[in-house]
Amino acid sequence: MAMNSEEIESRITAAFPDAQVIMVDLAGDGDHWAARVTSSAFAGKSRIQQHKMVYAAIGPDMGDALHALALQTFVPVN
């Protein structure tokens, strides 16, 4: 069973309470998502580190219930 956008967003915001998350269903099938995540937790981290942080927040469902996630991460601008 595929993960819906609310579940993905919930896991991300649980790990990063200040996160702003924008979800887009890329294929209209609920199985291929794009996420734009903005959080101060990413400050000072490389893009790879930021993406690994988000994947860790999603947990073991990444690659299983969540088949594909195109990810963009940002640090908020003050």
Rank of each mutant, 00 (worst) to 15 (best):
M1V: 14
M1Q: 13
M1T: 15
M3G: 08
N4Q: 12
E6C: 05
E6R: 15
E6M: 11
I8M: 09
I8H: 07
I8Y: 06
I8S: 03
E9Y: 05
E9Q: 13
I12W: 00
T13M: 10
T13P: 01
T13A: 06
T13R: 13
A15P: 08
F16G: 01
P17M: 00
P17S: 00
P17E: 00
Q20A: 11
V21R: 06
V21P: 04
I22P: 07
I22F: 12
I22R: 15
I22D: 15
M23D: 04
V24Q: 13
D25S: 05
L26S: 09
A27C: 11
G28H: 02
G28N: 01
G28M: 00
G28T: 01
D31P: 09
D31M: 11
D31K: 13
W33L: 02
W33V: 00
A35T: 05
A35F: 02
R36H: 14
R36L: 15
R36F: 13
V37T: 09
V37W: 02
T38C: 10
T38A: 04
T38Y: 03
S39R: 02
S39D: 03
S39T: 11
S39F: 04
S40M: 08
F42P: 00
F42E: 01
A43G: 09
G44N: 05
G44M: 06
K45D: 05
K45H: 11
S46K: 12
S46F: 10
S46E: 12
R47V: 15
I48D: 11
I48W: 07
Q49M: 12
Q49A: 15
Q49K: 14
Q50M: 06
Q50G: 10
Q50H: 03
H51E: 09
K52W: 08
M53C: 07
M53D: 07
M53F: 02
V54G: 02
V54H: 03
Y55P: 08
Y55D: 13
Y55Q: 14
Y55M: 12
A56F: 04
A56W: 06
A56V: 07
A56P: 04
A57D: 05
A57M: 08
I58R: 06
I58A: 00
I58W: 04
G59V: 01
D61R: 10
M62I: 13
M62P: 08
G63C: 05
D64W: 11
A65S: 15
L66D: 05
H67D: 07
H67Y: 10
L69G: 00
L69T: 01
A70I: 04
L71E: 02
L71I: 09
Q72P: 04
Q72H: 11
Q72L: 07
T73C: 07
T73M: 06
V75Q: 00
P76L: 00
P76Y: 01
V77L: 11
V77T: 14
N78E: 14
N78M: 08
